[in-house]
Write a protein that binds this DNA or RNA. Structure first.
Lengths: 141, 141
DNA sequence: TTGACAAATGCAACTAAGTTGCATAATAAT
DNA sequence: ATTATTATGCAACTTAGTTGCATTTGTCAA
């Protein structure tokens, strides 16, 4: 299995279980953030007889250890992605396709301004764009 | 009751019912976005014997008619606020206090860039800041 | 290698948000 | 007042997420 993942587990003192491996592998191969229910289904289809409690608890652990990041779009579910470079998303409101964007836009000046004027210490932010992807724009014409 | 609300209802051809009035008044007096369950509780405490189905359906209607806006923080509930000037929020991760910020930051250049490079037409965005409010910063020291 | 301890897992029962179908009540226009 | 339309209540439902407790599994030291 992925040696980077192996290393991260060692570093965080997390046991190297088959489910944890499978979850991290799946997240790694994922092009966009996935929800716990989707992850569960995906793993079960792949032959793992894993329980939903395990998936939810695992996401909590990985979040706490800083291996994954939680994002939330305009949905009733939380989504997760491996923590890497901080990025944002384009969410199509028609076909629900989610695309990541490497975002050059820097908000640290803004966050400094918020601290100065509002005395609020920003620890993280979320910035997501909702609209129409290229193919859905064409369909709507 | 508020004549602005009255006017909006006329304009949108929405019936002027006591529940709709109460919901709009409540939203109007709200300093930050409120969830449907909270809104329901608030109305019931105020003496309205209103059903949760009504509240949920009402929010759908007001959303569709463009009278309210839906926002979502890192929670399992949707929140609603009267649609006015577009603004963003500071959400304290310790005491959960939510503050609105009138945000001078303009993202339309960014959205134009996204259209040009990604062919994605942005219809709306969400930008929220999570961190520590002034008093929680002091407590954590 | 083995034994012991801590971490991981399954199961069942639970909470809470949000939805739906259908019957009834209230509103607005004529 | 009559009528068509919209709003509402109720009950039953779906789904995400949580919790307590019993059991299994991984890790590490002896």
């Amino acid at each position: 299995m992925n040696t980077v993942i192996q290393y991260l587990l060692k570093e965080q003192r997390l046991r190297n279980t088959r489910f944890r491996q499978a979850i991290l592998q799946t997240l790694d191969h994922q092009a966009s953030p996935i929800s716990a229910p989707d992850l569960l289904r995906k793993l079960q289809i792949s032959g793992y007889s894993i329980n939903k409690t395990t998936v939810y608890r695992e996401m909590d652990i990985l979040l706490a250890k800083g291996l994954v990041e939680e994002v939330r779009f305009n949905e009733d579910v939380r989504r997760y992605e491996l923590k890497s470079a901080h990025h944002h998303h384009l969410i199509c409101q028609t076909c629900q396709k989610i695309e990541e964007i490497a975002f050059a836009h820097d908000l640290s000046d803004k966050e400094a301004e918020i601290l100065a004027t509002k005395k609020f210490k920003v620890l993280k932010h979320s910035l997501e764009f909702f609209g129409l992807c290229e193919s859905c724009q064409k369909k709507c014409k």
